[in-house]
Nucleic acid binder design. Sequence first.
DNA 1: CTGTTAGCGCTTTCAA
DNA 2: TTGAAAGCGCTAACAG
Lengths: 361, 361
Amino acid sequence: VAADSGAPGSDSRKSGRPTMRDVASAAEVSLKTVSRVVNGEPSVAPELAVRVRDAIDRLHYQHDIGASMLRRSDRRTETIALLLEDVGNPFSAALHRAVEDEARSRGVQVLTASLDEDPQRERELLRIFTMRRVDGLIIAPVSPDQGNLHNEMRTDAPMVFVDRPGNDVAADSVLATNVTGAAEAVRHLIAHGHRTIAYLGDYWRITTARHRHEGYLTALGEAGLPADPRLVVHDLHTAAEAERAVMSLFRRPQPPTALFTSQNLVTIGAVRALRRLQLHREIAVIGFDDFPLADLLEPAITVVAQDPAMMGRTAAQALFRRIDGDTGPPEEFWIPTTFIRRGSGELPPSPRPAAPATTAL
Amino acid sequence: VAADSGAPGSDSRKSGRPTMRDVASAAEVSLKTVSRVVNGEPSVAPELAVRVRDAIDRLHYQHDIGASMLRRSDRRTETIALLLEDVGNPFSAALHRAVEDEARSRGVQVLTASLDEDPQRERELLRIFTMRRVDGLIIAPVSPDQGNLHNEMRTDAPMVFVDRPGNDVAADSVLATNVTGAAEAVRHLIAHGHRTIAYLGDYWRITTARHRHEGYLTALGEAGLPADPRLVVHDLHTAAEAERAVMSLFRRPQPPTALFTSQNLVTIGAVRALRRLQLHREIAVIGFDDFPLADLLEPAITVVAQDPAMMGRTAAQALFRRIDGDTGPPEEFWIPTTFIRRGSGELPPSPRPAAPATTAL
DNA sequence: CTGTTAGCGCTTTCAA
DNA sequence: TTGAAAGCGCTAACAG
């Protein structure tokens, strides 16, 4: 076995990729010297280093990061996991990009996955990424019982929550100012004279949706306006659902004069419905979360913009601090939202009680 | 060394995560039996299997995929790389999502990275992913010299090109019907009476941009229309650049009556410019590549829609076929574009010679 | 069905 | 500065 290890020229390889041993014998040095050159350790005689590098080029040697990680003392895979709602949606995609940039500057690779609001998928991915020994995780959690989940997994890799809090897990979190941002929007509508403001929100189980609803209620409360439950619709997750919800809202006797939509797709669905009802110049709309072309619609859509790139960057930076050994108490990073006036949020209350739509209903 | 391997209860661990050996001694079986249970090999007595699983739960053992891969005969990492222009843009994000879904169904993880049109970054990432021993790569290439790149890398992992062809590399590719899609759009404009049609395109070096320009020329040629180089602007990569280009186009003596924009952001920039010039109801526009809310603009934007999800799915399926050992000749998969009439492409040629903008210029 | 031995490709430890 | 030996956590090959 060890007999042919020093044998110089002859390729004792059966097939497959060349290893450090092959390079060593080609360069007529020890395996360890090759390792030193590959890892850029300084204590190698220049002459030997040249011989090694020559052999590497000649054999097209490719270092195996996986194998090296196995023996390394730090056991770093230089890999982090990013678990988002859906890598295909604009918010997640922007956040992903920011994380990638931050990771790139550290030579770290990113494994991304979409959770689709599925708790089972979340636990499965947590298991998989633990088995892959990622150095850390950034996660927009789905499960309400993050705590159990995390314990159960025994993922000793650091974790940072983004967009949504990791309920009772002691870890950093990066969150948008959902409550105050939503309240600001609703206050703006009230200041423009609206008294009947509908709330259209995402799944109630999603923390951010609850927070935005809370901001809505706060602003109403401040103004001494009643919180009419008939003006509140939860659990809208797609544009189509939101469109239907708005259509039926305007079939009611006392329709709202303004809408606060708590999410991207809901805003778009609402705008679609108002167009169909020919009410888009009558009914005020403010959406939470900005979206491309919001400024080109007529009227342009007033929004509470989030900053997904900043959230991603902040989360990645926090994670890398933990990976680097920071053991301070968990921190919360609040990423401010930006209120952007564009027109739809500045429409005054429509005098007439809105179109009767289908009288039969 | 081997002395304590069989020692039952006492934890001989110094620290860190438990290994199969720990599980083996806790369950009082051999290491190999644990391996069998973990890998779901059937030939284990139920009683032993239970003991092993108990020990796994008790010690919170977590299988190490990296270590297992090192010794496995297939040497699969169950990982693929996905190299896209920018994971943050809608086209890439949608494609990414489709690849993820396809990979998920095989238990494969996806490492994604953005190339930003940077050839150096492309070669660096190719090197990194080779060192990580991904099972395969899906790539929207940047370099014109893919051939050299690929050779140089000696990435024996299969590769599939998506969105852009991998020039003279013998590998599968998944491409949109850029030439015919573009020609269809321009034919449509011609059919609506336009004779002066501008082409606004992305970086000339990008293959898809060249193909779309080719389609533009084809349609003009068929109709016997001259190809006026003053109506062609290349190398527009952002909405702002496109906006400026369109503004200056309409300062000229013979402005076009219609625009064909060869890319998302260019379309949006063009629409912005037409709005500023108050020409959005005069000048026809057809964009290549659909975008959200294109139907809500006024006029709604007629487009040649691509199908990024289909492209991602097709690419992933092709890649997995190769990973599974298919060694047939390289294939080209053409994903058809869909022409979507929405209004902006159906505007007739504007009779008056368009606004004079700034007379001083 | 179960266990033993060897060794994946690399880094560590320690001696020369 | 260089190298030999040991072993990371696991699976393959071959015994019992």
